[in-house]
Structures are given as structure tokens and as C-alpha cells.
Design a protein around this nucleic acid. Structure first.
Lengths: 332, 332
DNA sequence: ATGAAAGCGCTAACAC
DNA sequence: GTGTTAGCGCTTTCAT
């Protein structure tokens, strides 16, 4: 910048003014412009940050991007952040608490503008409370905002849709991990609806899909159980996630069981594998774009009015997406 | 830091030394440590960067993350970057040249360590050549390294696998966009193999999947054409991407055509929707983890030996993954 | 081993 | 409008 100033025959202050859109004389503007071009000058943003103490970076901490739900969420978060002038630093935590903490530390060291996190650990208990923070899905410790979809209603909705489809025996399949707030809410919504309506319902569990061999073994066991205990055509299954639904579906098909004629399945998430194509299993769809929008909006507020912003608990509505795993020839 | 120094009764230089692991007297170390804890001090990395002029950030520019291939690639890039101590800034370009240029500008302003880009535009012609850069998939202008998978061999391999499965009529389906280097290579590999082996082959085109309604219309037209011109059982289709293969598959199934009995399909990419689950269509699989590894390794070299590194063209081998869209009861 | 001080590139307050 | 200058928080000589 000093070089540019010398080349243009003005002072650094004037160059700074020019760069930041302040008023300079047209003549001066032109000569600065030429100097910049000639010297191939690019402003040094680290210096600017050091001075202004305000960063454009928002840290997005997410367990993985390699999954339709999270990659869609990442897409929307980035999009909404960009529209407000922020840049996203993507941090994949792999559900590793240590990694998450490292990322938060990095955020602090970089003096990042804020953090948006989908964390399944107790990350929030360890945040320096003066860095703006928004949690997605996982309940945080009360001093941070939360954006989530309405898991409980999603569970109820799944049960109701199965009921509409003449299911007699209801099953919920979740993972053995009892810490998942979202799973508990989905399960409760489902089971409560069943109980309140006199429907026969059970909870089944499988290992986390990250332990893939055990996971498949568990699914296999469940399939055997379902088939031995019930009449085909009576069974309706609601799974904690689409991932479970898919493996279950494949397993059933391999055994020659027809879906949806013999067993109906509703997943959760409404996975779309790209912006255009969805897996067409029936599912309770999360409003991913809205989740991103509210999370970013909330964070932005927090950043801009850090002294006086509202800590919100935002609970977004889900919807049922009919697919090939339910009989969709129903009248309401 | 000044505060810490005062609190600990030493000079800032000593604090700096302590933080950077230089030798200080144990007594001093302890008092600094206490001061840091007491004042809740976190180093300011922007200042450090300004001084050292070396950033941990690598910009990863990618058209989208919302697609199994790109989300897998993003996952691996992040993983490999982290293992070498870099942080990833994710930039989603949406195939928008303007956005891509903005991202490069940002990289320069941040004095980022480097850029890895999957770009389908001529981004590389506009890079200040002094920022380390690696291109994935798209041929760059010669002064930058390139990592890609062997698209040409992939095309040949697809043809060969279809030939093994007694296909008589060969079709390639690609998009109308003729700029895609990868598509041209895949197509050429396929067509060359067919011509060299006396196989009847044709090229068909569809609109980009981003123009979704036209895309589906084109697929529909193609299906009609395939069915009218050939005997069921003779037909083998190789698609430019798995995405096309999936839409085609759904369309065929809706029309009651059996896959693979009536028509066999091989896609390209080997989409895995999560680390555990794949779409099980037959496909030519890109070695995504290797692509990421080589790209990062190359970039790292470029960063560390900027004066003297080798500009490589890395071409990685692909493989055939049998799935449900080909008859896999073959002997070789 | 430690302290003093220069300076990284920028912005903003102030004087003209 | 423009020039001058202090200072953001750190690292790094250079003395001591």
C-alpha cells in the first residue's frame, strides 16, 4: 500500500480512503487505480482485520458432510451466510469432541465472527460465552440460541400417516445411543401418538451406522423379528433416519418382502441426494433451507447486536413426503 | 498479551517465547500460565499472520457440495488438509464464474496458503500465478498442477464391461455442454473402444440436470428411442454421471422396462451417499480419496517449495463397481 | 533467558 | 480532500 501511495504520488491515507470508497478527487482516483494495477496490489485483509477487529468468517461445525442431510444443510448455510457477507469455514468434527474443541479454539484465535454448530457433544458448555454461537438440532445449555425442526411432531406425523394406511403393528427403529435428543423426541412423538390412539407400538434399536457390520446384523435380526411376529400387510415402521430406512428396505427386498405391500416404512430427513434428485422413500422431511436461514439470521443478530439480542428456541415444522415405501392411495 | 506480560511480571517478548514453545525458566512459565488463565487470554492469530505472512487456510472451490461425489470429495479434502495442519475454507461456486473469481480474490486478500479448485470455467487463466494452486478434474492452463481420474480409460472400461455382458447396442448419454473435458474423455474412451471392437455405438445428449424439466423430458425421449430401435436385452447404456443413470433407471422402471434384463446401465462416479451406503447402480468409480490425497499433497509441496516444485499431471485409475443395473453373472 | 523496540499493512483521528 | 501518525497484537532481532 505504501508502494501504491508512492507510485500514485499520494499518501497511504488517501489510498486507504480510495479503497474503502471514500471521496477522493477523480484525478487522484485514476492515478491510484493505475498504480494498483501496475503493482498488482491486493489489500491485505489480515492487516485490516487486525485493525478493525471484525472478521467475515463464520465457523460451521458439522459431524460430516458426506451424507445427504448434512451436505444439503452445508449448502444452505453457506448460501445464507454468503448472502449476508460472511465466509464459511467448514469444520468436520466426525463426532469427535476433541476435534470440536480444537475448532472452537481456532475460531477464537481467528477472532471469527461466530460459530454455527451441529454438535452431538456438550460443546456448548465449553464455549467462551463472548463468541456468537448458534446451535442446530442439539439442545444447548440455555445461554445460546437453538434452531431445530420439530422432531416430536414429526414422530406423531409418521404414526398418523401409517395409521391412515391401515397399519396395525407399529415399530420405531432408532439407534442404541440414548444421548440423541432428536431421536428421543422423534420416538416420543411416535409412541405417544400410538398410545393415545390405542395402537400397538414397539421400540427397536440398532447399532450406530458407523459400526456398519453390527448395524447390518441388527437390521437383519429386526427383519426376522418383524416377519415372525406379524402378518404381512399389517406392519408399519418409522425409522430415526432415512439411512436406517434404506438399509432396511434393501434387506427386505433381498428377502423377497414387498414394500409397501407387505411392510410400509417412513424415514426421517427427506434425503435429497442432489438439489434435483431425491431418494424416493417416504419420509418426514426437515425444512433444511429454513433451518439454515434461521440459524444464520439468528447468528447475524447476535453478531450485530451482541449487547442486546434475544436468545431464541426456534422449532421448525416438518412435513410428510410420500414415496415408494408407503401405500399412497389413501383418502383423508 | 501485554496484559498477560504485566500480570506475569515479564515482557511481551518472553510471553511470546513461552507461547511458541521456546525455552523460558520454569518459574516464569508457571506465572505466565497463571496469567493466561486468569485473563482468559487467547492468542490473536490475525496479528500472528500479519507478522509471519503465512496462513493455515486453504480455499477449496467446488461447484456444489450437495451431491454425493462432491460431498465425498469435500470430506476427503478436508481430512487430508487437516492432517497436514491446514484449515479449509469451503467456497461453493455454483458453477458461477463471477463467484469463483470473488473467491480467488478473497484468497489473495486473506493471503491464503493455497487454492484447490474443481472448476469448470477458465478460472486458472485469471489466477495471480504466485498463489499456490491445484486444479481437480478440469485441465488447467499448463502452469498449474492437475489431479484427475482417468476418464478415458473409464469410458473404455464401461464399454468392455457391457461387452462382457452380451450387449449388442451401445449408447453413451452425456449432456449437451461440450465444454466438459471429463465428459469428452469418457465419451471418447467409450466410443473408441466400441469402434475398435466393431460394436454399434451412438452418442445421445440430454440437457444439464440443472435444467431439471428439460433434462427429464430429454431422458423420456431417449427412452422412447431406445425401445423403438432395438430388441430388449441387446441394449447397454453408459452415462456421463451416476445422476443421469439414476433418472434413466427410474424412468425405465416406471415404464415397466426391466433393468438389467432388458437394458443394462453403467454410470460414472460410483456415488456413495454416505461413508457406509452406496447407491447400488453399476458404475465406474472414481478414487475420490486418492484424488483428494494427491491434490493436497501436491498443493503442500507447492506451498513449501514454492521456488522449486514439479508441476504434475496426475491421472488416477478408475474401477468398475458392479451393481443392480448390470447382469453380473459373467465369467471373464 | 529476558527485555526493548522495530515493524508487519492497515485504518481512523486529526490537522491542514 | 489529503497528509501525518498512532496503534491494532504479534514476532523477532539485538542487547544485555
Amino acid at each position: 500500500m505504501k508502494d501504491v501511495a508512492r507510485e500514485a504520488g499520494v499518501s497511504v491515507g488517501t489510498v486507504s480512503n480510495y479503497i474503502n470508497g471514500k471521496k477522493v478527487r477523480p484525478v487522484v482516483a485514476k492515478s491510484i487505480e493505475q498504480a494498483i494495477k501496475k503493482l498488482n496490489y491486493v489489500v491485505n485483509n489480515t492487516a485490516r482485520l487486525l485493525k478493525n477487529n471484525c472478521s467475515p468468517f463464520v465457523i460451521f461445525v458439522v459431524p460430516t458432510v458426506w451424507s445427504p442431510y448434512f451436505s444439503e444443510l452445508t449448502f444452505w448455510i453457506q448460501k445464507k451466510l454468503n448472502s449476508l457477507g460472511y465466509k464459511m469455514i467448514l469444520c468436520i468434527s466426525e463426532n469427535d469432541y476433541k476435534l470440536e474443541k480444537d475448532y472452537v479454539k481456532m475460531a477464537e484465535e481467528q477472532r471469527a465472527a461466530g460459530i454455527i454448530s451441529v454438535s452431538y457433544s456438550n460443546l456448548t458448555t465449553h464455549i467462551r460465552s463472548d463468541i456468537p454461537f448458534v446451535s442446530i438440532e442439539k439442545e444447548s445449555t440455555g445461554i445460546f440460541p437453538l434452531v431445530t425442526s420439530d422432531n416430536y411432531s414429526g414422530g406423531s406425523l409418521a404414526a398418523k400417516e401409517l395409521q391412515l394406511r391401515n397399519v396395525k403393528r407399529y415399530y420405531f427403529i432408532g439407534t442404541t445411543n440414548q444421548d440423541s435428543v432428536s431421536m428421543i423426541a422423534r420416538r416420543s412423538g411416535f409412541m405417544d401418538y400410538c398410545h393415545n390412539n390405542g395402537l400397538m407400538a414397539d421400540v427397536l434399536t440398532v447399532a450406530s451406522s458407523r459400526k456398519i457390520s453390527q448395524f447390518r446384523k441388527d437390521i437383519d435380526k429386526i427383519v426376522k423379528k418383524l416377519l415372525s411376529e406379524n402378518n404381512l400387510g399389517d406392519i408399519g415402521v418409522f425409522t430415526h433416519t432415512d439411512e436406517i430406512a434404506i438399509v432396511l428396505l434393501n434387506e427386505l427386498r433381498m428377502k423377497g418382502i414387498r414394500v409397501p405391500e407387505d411392510i410400509q416404512i417412513i424415514g426421517f430427513d427427506g434425503w435429497k441426494i442432489t438439489e434435483e434428485d431425491s431418494l424416493n422413500i417416504s419420509s418426514i422431511r426437515q425444512p433444511v433451507d429454513m433451518i439454515a436461514e434461521y440459524a444464520v439470521k439468528q447468528l447475524d443478530e447476535e453478531i450485530r447486536y451482541s449487547d442486546n439480542f434475544e436468545i431464541r428456541r426456534i422449532n421448525l415444522p416438518v412435513s410428510f413426503i410420500p414415496g415408494i415405501t408407503t401405500n399412497n392411495d389413501v383418502r383423508r
